[in-house]
Amino acid sequence: MKTTEKVKTYSPQGFRDRFLENDNSKDYLFKSNSEHFFCLKLEEINQLKFPVPPSKHICHTLLFITSGTHKIKIGFEEYTTQSNEIIVIPAGQIFSIDSINTEIEGFICQFHPNILIGKYGNPEMINDFDFLKIWGSPDLYFPNKESQFIIQLLNRLQVEYTESGVTNLDIIQPYLIALLCEINKNALKINKNGTAATVLTTKFKELIYAHINQQHQVNYYASILNVTPNHLNKSIKFATGKSPTKWIEESILLEAKYLLYQTNFSVSEIAMQVGHYDQSYFSRIFKKSEGVSPVQYRKLIDKS
């Protein structure tokens, strides 16, 4: 899409299809271009159809709540976001939504990472924002003063998008960068006192994301992090309440559920995608966790 092309705004009825870029083909469900952007008020899209099964998007999504509460699963953790909180769904992160509270108010802003590259940005800028990384903290609270700054920036982006679409990146890009910088300022305040265990946990999550399709052994991750398996186990349990083994198992199953929904891969292909070359073993551990086989899970999703 060229920046000179007029882009229509999203009607509430068609929003979910546009949000997911749904062209009735699972393989292209989340297809998007490098200038993809929108910013809308949540009140304008309360006719979205739910649930949304485990899914991924190649764009970053920000949900800022000004009134009411909203529940969303990011990875395998559920978050309840309230007034003056922002929920971040990083590009590539698996998320799911069971339902939406139609009484919530706020904003939803989605953008492709490449939109930060150009006149006012650069490719390295995205690395400054840890909250946009899959292993970052997705739920951030803002005191009243800081939340007003966020609202002002989102209002400006929403007005620009509603009136002009993405035709004027010279306006959208600097306001979007300012928004991310405001969010980052607060995120850094929250994370500056991170313990050694939380720092190690963050690195561990990053490694799982990068290697889950090949490496399932705690010993492997401990060696990469230059700690003993016992130390890694204690640190992860202390920081999260779950063992490294549990994190690995849940990451495998979550990736499998996403692939069952969003692709046309066979069960054997999905098993290989998550590092299991024995389809029958993969199917057994999936059914043990979910109560249904991978094939039955896919059928249940299709019916929904």
Rank of each mutant, 00 (worst) to 15 (best):
M1H: 10
K2S: 15
K8D: 15
G14A: 13
K26A: 15
Y28V: 10
L29C: 04
F30C: 13
F30N: 14
F37Y: 05
S55F: 04
H57L: 15
I65C: 05
T69L: 05
K71G: 01
K73A: 11
E78L: 02
Q82D: 05
Q82P: 00
I86N: 04
I87H: 05
I87V: 11
I87Q: 09
V88S: 01
A91L: 02
G92A: 04
I104H: 05
G106S: 10
P113T: 04
N114W: 08
I115H: 02
I117W: 00
I117L: 01
G118W: 02
Y120N: 13
P123V: 11
M125Y: 01
I126P: 00
N127E: 12
L132Y: 00
K133F: 01
K133C: 02
P138D: 06
P138T: 04
N144I: 13
E146T: 04
E146L: 08
S147F: 05
Q148L: 13
Q148Y: 07
Q148G: 06
F149P: 00
I150Y: 04
L154A: 05
N155L: 08
N155F: 04
R156Q: 15
E160V: 13
Y161N: 12
S164D: 03
L176V: 11
I177W: 09
A178C: 14
C181Y: 10
E182D: 01
N184E: 03
K185G: 11
N186P: 00
A187D: 05
A196Q: 12
T198I: 06
T198V: 09
V199W: 06
V199D: 12
K203C: 08
K205L: 12
Y209P: 01
H211R: 14
Q214E: 14
Q217A: 08
Q217L: 08
N219G: 07
Y221M: 04
N226E: 14
V227E: 02
T228M: 05
L232W: 02
K237Q: 05
K237M: 06
K242A: 10
W247F: 15
W247K: 11
I248F: 04
E249F: 13
I252L: 10
I252A: 00
L253K: 10
K257H: 03
L260E: 10
Y261D: 09
T263H: 09
N264S: 15
F265A: 08
F265C: 07
A271R: 03
V274G: 01
H276S: 06
Y277S: 12
S280G: 09
K287C: 14
K287A: 15
E290V: 13
V295E: 15
Y297D: 06
Y297F: 15
K299P: 00
L300K: 15
I301A: 10
